[in-house]
Simulated scan of single mutants.
Amino acid sequence: MDLDSIIIRFPWQLVKAKVRRTIEEALKVWSDVTPLTFTEVQEGRADIVIDFTRYWHGDNLPFDGPGGILAHAFFPKTHREGDVHFDYDETWTIGNSLGTDLLQVAAHEFGHVLGLQHTAVSKSLMSPFYIFRYPLSLSEDDKQGIQYLYGKPSADPDPTPTQPAELPQPDLETNEITNVEAAQPDACHTAFDAAATIRGELFFFRSRYVWRLRAGKLQDGYPALASRHWQGIPSSVDATFEDPLGNIWFFRDSQYWIYDGERRVSGPTPIVELGLPASPVQAALVWGAEKNKIYIFSGGNYWRFNPQRRQVDNIYPRAMADWRGVPPEIDAAFQDEFGFAYFLRGRDYWKFDPVQVKVLEGYPRQISQDFFSCTPSSNSFR
């Protein structure tokens, strides 16, 4: 089977000839183990359409600037099948870890265009997260997956490849499957999923990663995988806090996990057992001089939670309006050593005075600037 490819636009960091060679090499990863052949065309229609583009670009899947989303692709039998989009604003490189390696990302995306979904098998090209590895090669899982769809090369001594009747069908109601790749996030250009003071240090969470600040300074080696500290933690967390007994709670979707230090002691457990609704928890705040008040936030409401009884004090929530000046929807919350509370939404934060019981003047401010010493940005979420 011969498939055509075309490159619409190129990344600014790389000369076109290198990009073409890299795209050819990324496609060759798949043609080496299947009967597929790929030919680049300069104009006209093509089976695979490659574009380097920015922010909103016509498919309702906007890019987000440097870091975060690297690329996405559309599966066969979707309305944009064959389209592969790369974020123009990434630092694209070839063969090194100084930026984002185009070869590995492209090969992964072409796997999706050909019909492969993500795999849970570690060190596979089709694993869901980008990690720089050289040389590029397929795992046995990658190879078996693509050969299930297209069979083995015609020169293969085994003459009986599996010949599928149909490619995988999308399982979303919109009849569209896309893939979003996550690089190691950049604290200067990201919004955080959760934040908490744990063992006297401040932790910020995004996707699988965590940043660790001690006395206001980012520690060396961060961001790091959160699983480095808490093995078995979900791939991303919605909220977290450390209770007065030193247990660390993590929330994801409608479940929670409890850790004693780095050891998991329970979970996943449904949050409805805590008296909370089944909707995801957005933030959790340990509050008060004795740090004995814990508040859970979700959907513009909040509950007071008793960790000893492992139940909310009242199943009926209160409105966020009680926290004067705090936006109704938040992403994370934590308390500092002086008793001030911090509420995060997008890339902004609000500092809440426990004496005046309201947000201080001059907020919101940017998380990246005040906690990570980044250059002020004008594109903060509001």
Rank of each mutant, 00 (worst) to 15 (best):
P244C: 10
E24P: 00
R45E: 15
S368K: 08
P170C: 09
S266M: 12
F129D: 07
F129P: 00
K217P: 00
P157T: 05
W249N: 01
G82K: 08
L116Q: 12
I271T: 11
I271H: 08
D336T: 06
P135E: 02
G299S: 03
I177F: 10
P62D: 02
I7K: 03
R214P: 01
K16G: 06
C188G: 09
R208K: 08
G111Q: 05
R133A: 11
Q163W: 11
L225E: 05
A165R: 15
D101W: 09
G339P: 10
L149K: 04
P168G: 03
L138P: 03
I50Q: 04
M320L: 08
W323C: 09
Q356T: 11
T375R: 08
N247C: 04
D331N: 15
P11N: 00
S31L: 05
I94Y: 05
L98A: 12
Y148S: 07
A239D: 05
W211L: 05
P62T: 00
R264F: 08
D156H: 14
A183Y: 01
F129N: 09
P234G: 10
G267D: 05
K291R: 15
D353P: 04
P277M: 03
G65V: 01
K18T: 14
F110I: 12
G232E: 07
P317V: 12
Q147F: 12
P157V: 09
A191Y: 14
T269W: 00
T100L: 04
A46D: 07
D313G: 00
W350T: 01
A283Y: 01
A195F: 07
T197M: 14
T78N: 01
K293L: 14
E329D: 07
L172F: 13
S254Q: 11
R304N: 10
V121I: 11
